[in-house]
Amino acid sequence: MRNLVLMISLAVLMSACGGDSDVAKLKSKLESIEKDIQEKTIEAAELEEKIAKMDPEFAKKTEQSVLIKSATIAKSDFKHKIQVQGEVASRKNITMGAETMGRVMQINVTPGDMVKRNQLLVKMDASTTENSIKELKTALDLASTIYKKQKNLWEQEIGTEVQYLEAKNRKETLERQLATAQSQLNMAYLKAPFNGRINDVNVNMGEMVQPGMPVLSMVSQEEMYLKAAVSEEYINDFSQGDSVEVYLPSIKKSFSTVVSSVSYVINPANRTFQLEVKVNEFLENLKPNQFARLTLVDYENENAIVVPSEVVQQDNVGDFIYLVKTKDNQKKAEKVRIERGKTFNGKTEILKGIEAGDVIISQGYREAVNGIAVRLAK
Rank of each mutant, 00 (worst) to 15 (best):
N131A: 15
E245N: 15
V324Y: 00
G357I: 01
T326L: 08
K168P: 09
N195I: 15
I338Q: 02
S243Q: 07
M218H: 07
G353P: 01
V230Q: 00
K149N: 13
G102Q: 05
E31R: 09
I51R: 02
Q290G: 05
V277W: 01
E367T: 03
M208A: 10
S183K: 14
L120N: 08
P308K: 06
V5Q: 13
V104W: 00
P56D: 02
R366P: 01
Q313V: 03
L185N: 15
K137Y: 14
Y164A: 09
A373W: 00
N270W: 07
A228D: 04
Q85W: 10
E34V: 08
V265M: 08
T110H: 08
I266Y: 09
E39N: 12
Y234S: 01
Y365W: 07
V219F: 11
T62I: 12
L142D: 11
I82N: 09
M205T: 09
K40E: 10
E87T: 00
P111R: 04
Q119H: 03
F320W: 04
E349S: 07
I198S: 12
A52F: 05
K151T: 13
Q240M: 12
P268H: 13
D20N: 15
C17N: 12
V306C: 11
V162M: 03
F58T: 01
N267F: 03
Y247K: 14
N345R: 04
K60L: 05
S65T: 02
Q177N: 15
K81L: 06
Y225V: 00
S231P: 00
K148P: 01
E222I: 08
N285Y: 11
F344K: 07
V258Y: 12
F194T: 14
V23R: 13
I305R: 02
N204L: 10
T145H: 08
T128R: 05
M96K: 08
V369Q: 08
V162C: 00
V122A: 02
Q64F: 11
Q83C: 06
T145A: 11
E310Y: 13
E99L: 11
G212W: 08
G353H: 03
N186I: 10
I361N: 07
K278I: 01
K116R: 14
L4Q: 14
I51M: 11
V104T: 06
P193H: 10
K171N: 14
T95C: 04
T272E: 02
S9G: 15
